[in-house]
């Protein structure tokens, strides 16, 4: 019994010695970055837009990111549902806010939500709000800032500037596929039919979605018609 007690005391002394050694070493090396790391352990996100039961489930399980992913899939499904399109997606902004509360670093949520709300539903205010949250949590992400700029210029009807920002976002590779459709439509509004035709052709070849393919065919038919009219007018000397 005595031997086992001695062993226990030895282990405790060894443990405290080791702990003291390591803590001292930590303080000497780089405490600031360590402090940052542990502050992220105890970080607490905004709870305003997440239902309390869902919030509790996310916190108790430690599966916050996964819950955000599930909500993302649900939001994409919601956006793809034709029934919701008729109602102009009333819950889209709220759904994006829920995802942002669960995982504020999920960038595509902001670009997808922002693009859909501003360019397709005309709810620029909500889009800007969403992108502001995204920029707050992802300050180094230029794509979100450029999208905000594109939305503001769209609001001011300066479509040439909108094109520049949208092109940057698409080239970065971080933008949702939907943004290419938006850029193609902006080209049509600017009467730059050849650029619009090129983009819709790319969409037609790349997309796996039947709805998007149908939309591309429809748009291409309209563009060909407009291009032919333009050619005819040029020949006839009408500008």
């Amino acid at each position: 019994m005595l031997r086992s007690d001695v062993r226990k005391i030895f282990l405790i002394v060894l443990f405290f010695g080791l702990q003291g050694f390591l803590s001292n070493k930590n303080l000497k090396s780089d405490f600031n970055s360590n402090e940052y790391f542990f502050s992220t352990v105890n970080q607490h996100f905004s709870v305003k837009h997440v239902p309390s039961i869902l919030r509790a489930a996310a916190d108790l399980s430690g599966f916050r990111t996964i819950m955000a992913d599930f909500f993302w899939i649900e939001t994409v499904e919601y956006y793809g549902d034709f029934k919701n399109q008729k109602l102009l997606y009333p819950d889209l902004y709220q759904d994006c806010r829920v995802i942002a509360s669960l995982n504020p670093y999920f960038e595509i949520n902001y670009t997808f939500g922002g693009a859909a709300l501003a360019f397709e539903l005309g709810r620029s205010g909500q889009a800007i709000n969403l992108l502001k949250i995204g920029s707050y949590y992802n300050p180094k992400d230029v794509v979100l800032k450029y999208m905000m700029a594109a939305i503001v210029y769209q609001h001011l009807h300066q479509l040439n500037k909108v094109v520049a920002f949208l092109k940057y976002d698409i080239d970065s590779g971080k933008a949702p596929q939907r943004l290419i459709n938006i850029l193609a439509n902006t080209y049509i509004k600017l009467k730059k039919y050849s650029q619009a035709k090129h983009l819709w052709e790319v969409i037609l070849h790349k997309t796996h979605s039947v709805t998007e393919r149908e939309e591309a065919v429809r748009k291409l038919a309209a563009i060909y018609k407009l291009l032919n009219e333009k050619k005819y007018n040029r020949r006839a000397g009408i500008e």
Partner: peptide, 9 residues
Amino acid sequence: DRMYLPHHV
């Protein structure tokens, strides 16, 4: 859950 933090160290 913290994999996507922009300043994650």
